[in-house]
Computed example of a mutant assay.
Amino acid sequence: MATSTLHNSSLVMLALLLVFAILHSGGASLRYWGAARIGERAWRLLFAAISIPAAVVLVGYFLAHRYDGLRLWNLQDQAWIVPLVWAGTAISFFFLYPATYNLLEIPALQQPKVRLYASGIIRISRHPQAVGQVLWCFTHLLWIGSSFMLVTCVGLIAHHL
């Protein structure tokens, strides 16, 4: 792979992560302002209409380029790596999604509200999304072992920090 391809795909990934962070976290920070002007449900739909396509583009680019870059290591022939990646990924999703999404709020079927979670995964972690993201990055970085994956993981973890 040419060096320019390595740098281009990694730089594009960092740019996409930055755009997603601005749209998603920036949009979340404007929730009260937007909800006061257009209503909670309309704001939630607008936020989802912006965040979800940005996430789809980000995931699509990642899937298309995940093996780009320099190969830093290759553990895929090790017997222990597949169960570790599957188990780590499964555990990461227990942290990533239950505390993040109430899927009925996205299409505005339920009235969105701010909640204090005192049960479930929140009892284990103060910020389950960050814990899940770090675990997902760790397992995928072990599996793929490319410089592109390293750049992606640094960007994702930096966004959560």
Rank of each mutant, 00 (worst) to 15 (best):
Leu17Val: 12
Thr5Met: 08
Ala108Glu: 04
Asn8Val: 09
Leu11Val: 09
Phe138Leu: 15
Gln76Ile: 06
Leu75Val: 12
Trp143Leu: 14
Val114Asp: 14
Phe47Asp: 03
Gly60Phe: 07
Trp136His: 05
Met149Ala: 05
Arg123Met: 10
Asn8Arg: 14
Trp143Asp: 10
Ala55Pro: 02
Leu116Pro: 03
Val85Glu: 09
Ala87Leu: 12
His159Gln: 14
Asp68Ile: 04
Leu17Asp: 09
Ser119Val: 12
Val151Thr: 03
Arg66Leu: 08
Leu109Arg: 11
Leu70Phe: 11
Ala158Cys: 02
Ala35Leu: 02
Arg123Ser: 11
Ala118Tyr: 15
Thr152Met: 10
Leu63Ile: 15
Leu18Cys: 10
Ile157Ser: 05
Ile124Phe: 12
Trp43Ala: 00
Leu141Phe: 15
Ile22Gly: 09
Ile144Trp: 02
Tyr97Val: 15
Asn102Glu: 12
Tyr61Pro: 02
Ile157Pro: 03
Val56Arg: 01
Phe95Thr: 05
Arg71Asp: 05
Leu116Ala: 14
Phe138Ser: 08
Leu75Met: 11
His7Met: 13
Leu11Asp: 08
Tyr97Trp: 13
Ile50Glu: 03
Ala21Pro: 01
Ala158Lys: 01
Cys153Val: 00
Ile144Gln: 00
Ser9Gly: 01
Gln133His: 07
Ser9Glu: 03
His160Phe: 09
Leu150Met: 06
Gln129Tyr: 13
Leu45Trp: 07
Tyr61Asp: 01
Leu46Pro: 03
Ala99Cys: 08
Ser51Lys: 04
Ala21Phe: 11
Trp143Val: 08
Ala28Cys: 05
Glu40Leu: 11
Pro107Gln: 06
Ala130Cys: 14
Leu150Tyr: 00
Trp80Leu: 05
Trp136Arg: 00
Ala79Ile: 08
Asp68Gly: 06
Leu46Trp: 04
Trp80Arg: 06
Arg41Val: 13
Ser146Lys: 03
Leu135Lys: 00
Ser146Ala: 06
Asn102Lys: 09
Gly120Thr: 11
Arg126Phe: 13
Leu45Gly: 10
Ala87Cys: 07
His159Ser: 15
Ala90Thr: 11
His24Tyr: 05
Gln76Cys: 03
His140Arg: 01
Tyr32His: 15
His7Tyr: 13
Trp73Ile: 03
Ile121Phe: 05
Val131His: 08
Phe62Ala: 08
Ala87Gln: 03
Asp68Val: 07
Ile22Asn: 08
Tyr97Leu: 15
Pro128Thr: 14
Gly60Leu: 09
Val151Tyr: 01
Pro98Gly: 06
Trp143Ala: 14
Gly120Lys: 09
Ile124Ala: 13
Ala54Glu: 01
Ser119Asp: 14
Ala48Gln: 00
Ile81Asp: 04
